[in-house]
């Protein structure tokens, strides 16, 4: 691997239970600086839980989780200064205007009001949202909200980014812009954790793919490595194969036959 060997995330024997259900069954993972990790897996495999643990939102886990060499715990929050996060569900205080929301978030990261405000406005302009900078977010379309979330995750120039389905609602042009942004960030040594269900995007942007299934990692490597191991052509096919899902044709036929009735 041609990355500088600086460990950004180190996870060892991570386990997590919700009641009697074990959602993570011993995850081991080391992430180096500059990597774009494609973090994939079926619904309920434990992707979001892992991300939540790394962000310090869940604390009842077993194992070791270190980010920037610091132990993740409820008490420790300093490491969060260098993290950006785009959640899967567009949760934000939408009765604020974009200006109010973004300056607030920037200030939470310790930036001063004028700097954030100026930066946020410029970023909004790049995304073509300068006209609505002072409108309430509740009046935004899905794509516009997503852009605000993306901006809010990058305001403080973080070193580590967690992106959970960051492209949802964005139009094709914005998607291209954003993918390019990620490539530039990674080349500057930022580390990106990219979680998504859209396989062709993951295939294209990530330089390392981690597939998680039922709380365990079942594949870890670059796309080419996975391709060699599994003898399949696309990430989607590899995904289907590794998650043991091969009845898609049958299910599709059943679905259509129900639609048609007989």
């Amino acid at each position: 691997m041609e990355t500088i060997d600086e460990v950004i995330v180190a996870i060892k024997d991570l386990e997590m239970h919700y009641g009697v259900k074990q959602v993570l069954k011993g995850i081991n993972l080391t992430v180096y600086r500059g990597q774009i990790i494609g973090y994939i897996g079926p619904n309920g495999a434990g992707k979001s839980t892992t991300i939540k643990i790394m962000l310090g939102l869940e604390s009842d886990y077993y194992g070791k989780v270190e980010i920037f060499g610091e132990k993740v715990s409820e008490k420790n929050m300093e490491y969060k200064r260098k993290i950006g996060y785009v959640p899967e569900i567009a949760e934000l205080y939408d009765n604020l205007t974009a200006q109010e929301y973004l300056t607030f978030i920037g200030e939470l990261y310790g930036m001063d009001v004028e700097t954030v405000n100026e930066k946020a406005e410029k970023l909004m302009r790049v995304f073509g949202l300068e006209n609505v900078y002072h409108s309430r977010i509740s009046s935004y379309s899905k794509g516009m909200r997503q852009k605000v979330l993306i901006i809010s995750s990058l305001l403080h120039n973080p070193d580590l980014l967690f992106l959970d389905e960051p492209l949802s609602g964005l139009d094709a042009n914005s998607v291209m812009v954003f993918k390019e942004i990620l490539a530039i960030l990674a080349s500057q040594g930022k580390t990106i954790f990219y979680s998504s269900h859209i396989m062709d995007v993951v295939e294209k942007i990530s330089n390392r793919i981690i597939l998680i299934k039922d709380g365990s990692i079942v594949a870890d490597g670059s796309f080419n490595e996975l391709k060699e191991q599994n003898k399949e052509g696309t990430l989607e096919q590899i995904f289907n194969q590794l998650t043991g899902f091969n009845e898609y044709k049958g299910l599709a036929e059943e679905f259509v036959s129900i639609v048609q009735g007989d």
């Binding site: 939102l57 409820e74 929050m77 969060k80 996060y85 939470l108």
Partner: peptide, 14 residues
Amino acid sequence: VRDKGILLTKPVDK
């Protein structure tokens, strides 16, 4: 419930 997701992911202690 938004507080948790929005604020605790930032450097804000509980």
